[in-house]
Amino acid sequence: MITFKNIHKSFGDNQVLKGINCTIPTGSVTVILGPSGSGKTTLLRSINFLEKADRGEIILDDLHINVEKASKAEIHKIRQHTAMVFQMYNLFTNKTALENVMEGLTIVKKLPKHEAKEQALFYLEKVGLVNKADAYPHELSGGQQQRIGIARALALNPDVILFDEPTSALDPELVGEVLEVMQTVVQEVNSTMLVVTHEINFAREVADNIIFMDHGVIVEQGPPEEILSNPKEERTKQFLSRYISFNEYDI
């Protein structure tokens, strides 16, 4: 379970998060929607302290962190319980696909090499890229790189996986393969998943819960059928109407 208590964050004069309070149940899939600049990515990145929020509390199971006073040890600990899939994939460019997945297992989890390799191959299999195990990132397409990124996150068997717009940088034709992998992952893995995305259909199909953010606050949250089909807040309706009609027009 992740709980945010009154999370605030500013970049200079720009207030990005204005007091976020919410709870994400263990094992659930939560999708965060919202227009650009609404603070959803910042919120996601504040969980593993890639972005340090200014104040508030982050609670991950029995780990209570007061953001202001967060110690190095606490930050390190929460990072060991979470994993992230990045918008720009961020695969280690000096390592092969297999080594990318193994890195966390050997260095962080301290598994012996052969065991780490076995596990890494298992997760590469899961994302359908065992045949690319020895390829370097620059030899892979965006979609393949992102699938390796997902395998890297899964291999750590984290309590929480954070997806930061995993399909936004992809060619439209490659979005499908990544979403497909994510869908199977959702069914097979017990980790809590927090997904920032613009893929409304993905949200509709796999999310247990949707959070709609705008201007640094949570406008509305609830199960997908409620938020997507029957939103209460004017701002949510406005956002979705543009989005959904745009998508239909696109098809």
Binding site: L50, H76, A83, F86, N94, E103, G104, V108, L156
Partner: peptide, 26 residues
Amino acid sequence: EKGQMEAALSIGMTWWQGFYRIILRQ
């Protein structure tokens, strides 16, 4: 790229591990 260190930290590596194993070599 900044994302390289972020990725290293996100999988639970320390700054030094990320610096030595990823950043320095690139």
